[in-house]
């Protein structure tokens, strides 16, 4: 199960990616497009993990998760793109909300 439905199903895409990249250059327009598509795909996963989570996180209200994420992004920008500041701020909002609401 893990070998077929897990390993093949994920590495297949990586291998196709290696072959499809072919002789694509780092400065070409196609490269910029492919990167934008990859970025949008990851963003889609991010949104899905925030809005439709699994496990304990699903216990929290959706607006709290959105608020925590937005606050994290805001703090990250204000702290001049300091990763740790953004992550800690988002988690503080989430955990405080957890104790106030649940």
């Amino acid at each position: 199960m893990i070998a077929v439905a897990g390993w093949i199903a994920t590495d297949m895409w990586r291998w196709i990616g290696v072959f499809a990249s072919g002789k694509m250059s780092e400065t070409s327009q196609i490269f910029i497009w492919v990167r934008a598509v990859a970025t949008a795909l990851i963003a889609g996963i991010i949104a899905r993990l925030i809005l439709f989570p699994s496990g304990e996180l699903a216990e929290t209200p959706m607006w709290l998760r959105i608020l925590a994420a937005a606050w994290g992004a805001f703090s990250y920008k204000v702290a001049r793109e300091h990763l740790m500041v953004g992550i800690v701020s988002a988690e503080v909002v989430l955990i405080s909300g957890w104790f106030i609401l649940l």
Binding site: W13, I16, G17, S21, V34, R35, A38, L41, I42, I45
Partner: peptide, 10 residues
Amino acid sequence: SVRLMPMTMA
């Protein structure tokens, strides 16, 4: 896992 393809390509 589709995202892994454009990520690898990039």
